[in-house]
Write a protein that binds this DNA or RNA. Structure first.
Length: 272
DNA sequence: CAGAATACCTGCGGGC
DNA sequence: TGCCCGCAGGTATTCT
């Protein structure tokens, strides 16, 4: 369940259950994730207190007394808060037992996610140090996006999904943002005008903010809620709707391939 | 440097 | 029913 709003929703949902709790026990059933879980992981985390959880891009950082646990949900990962007695199922890879009798369970069918302990500060962490600025900050603005696009001949959708340029926008929100700003997904990035970049950037911020807000409605039920909050509650204009009518102009939505990913768009609203 | 191809992994639905 | 294919909300690495 991983685009930025889902990760942020997870962070907020988890926070009240884990803040200031101490890690009492760790059960790992599968160490082979995107990166193998270090053999030292348990030793590094055990008896440490979780001070808070931060988010950088789609990564969650569990700040411990010493160092931090970095976690990514990949394509299919999710976290839940459960009772420690809950039996594990097939893809429940990691359980973290806390001093308050709660348990955090990490589940990830496809194992594209990761979890590991780090001591190095963020600028030295190879997974974090090249990431683009957070999309909801001032550093991520129209001038920045326009400048980045100047040297890119590839499809704007591919640029949007590149972590070194924009962070947190995945396959769903890229399609939604391009629809909102009326830009064709395959349009070469360096042919966009400044105004188009501005519209696109505003769309990104608006979509991400709104999705985080909507995710908030699932928070009160976060504990034990399995799953993929957010996407179902949300109104999607183009994602997964090829062949159906455009919600703005009624034209039949089309689809194309950008970087081996199915991409839906409206041929009329997104002419350029 | 930009860009394209490739790799990691499991499960599901469709076509035959 | 079984098999094969393509597809699924991510991202780092390798090559040209």
């Amino acid at each position: 369940m991983p685009e930025l709003p889902e990760v942020e929703t997870t962070r907020r949902g988890l926070l009240p259950f884990v803040e200031k709790a101490t890690i009492k026990r760790i059960i790992i059933r599968q160490r082979q994730l995107r990166y193998p879980i270090s053999p030292q992981f348990e030793k590094r985390c055990l008896h440490q207190t979780i001070q808070t959880i931060e988010r950088r891009s789609k990564y969650l950082k569990f700040i411990l007394d010493k160092g931090y646990v970095l976690l990514h949900l990949g394509m299919s990962g999710h976290l839940r808060v459960l009772s420690q007695a809950t039996p594990a199922e097939k893809h429940d890879h990691v359980d973290i037992w806390l001093s308050n009798q709660q348990m955090i369970r990490y589940t990830d069918t496809r194992r594209f996610g990761m979890i590991n302990w780090y001591q190095v500060p963020e600028p030295e962490n190879a997974l974090l140090n090249r990431l683009a600025p957070e999309p909801l900050t001032r550093q991520c603005n129209s001038a920045y996006l326009f400048a980045q696009c100047q040297s890119k001949t590839k499809a704007i959708k591919k640029v949007l999904m590149d972590n070194h340029i924009v962070v947190g926008v995945g396959n769903i929100y890229a399609q939604e943002c391009l629809f909102m700003s009326q830009i064709h997904p395959a349009y070469p990035a360096n042919q966009l005008s400044y105004d188009q970049c501005q519209n696109l950037l505003h769309a990104i911020k608006r979509v991400l903010k709104k999705s985080i807000q909507q995710g908030g409605t699932t928070l009160k039920d976060f504990k034990k809620v399995d799953g993929k909050p957010g996407y179902f509650a949300q109104k999607l204009y183009v994602y997964g709707r090829a062949g159906q009518d455009c919600l703005k102009c009624s034209q039949t939505l089309a689809h194309c391939n950008v970087d081996s990913r199915t991409t839906s768009y409206c041929p009329k609203c997104q002419a350029t």
